[in-house]
Amino acid sequence: MILSFLLFSIGIAGVVFRRNTIIILMCLELMFNSVNLLLTAFSAYHSDPRAQVFVFFIMLVAAAEVTVGLAILVMMKRNVDSVDVNQLNRLKW
């Protein structure tokens, strides 16, 4: 649990403190993995294999999410010509 919490906090720190969009996506992956690890640890301690099915579906959703995120990143690079998230302030009111 402490390992999972540390990985999650590192992921949050990366999302907050970096501006490169691709590193923010990697830190999102890190957070997904920490949650998966915590779920698997719980399923091992309770000897209940249903949580592993849940982790499997989380992995599939994370793969799809990364694909969409990288597509957004390619479009952002073509339109704004940068990967800095501070350049994406066009949707501000």
């Binding site: 390992l3 540390l6 990985l7 590192i10 990366g14 990697m26 890190l30």
Partner: peptide, 10 residues
């Protein structure tokens, strides 16, 4: 290994 490499990622 995982924590050190995660710190390297960030």
């Amino acid at each position: 290994i995982s924590i050190i490499s995660a710190l390297i990622v960030v």
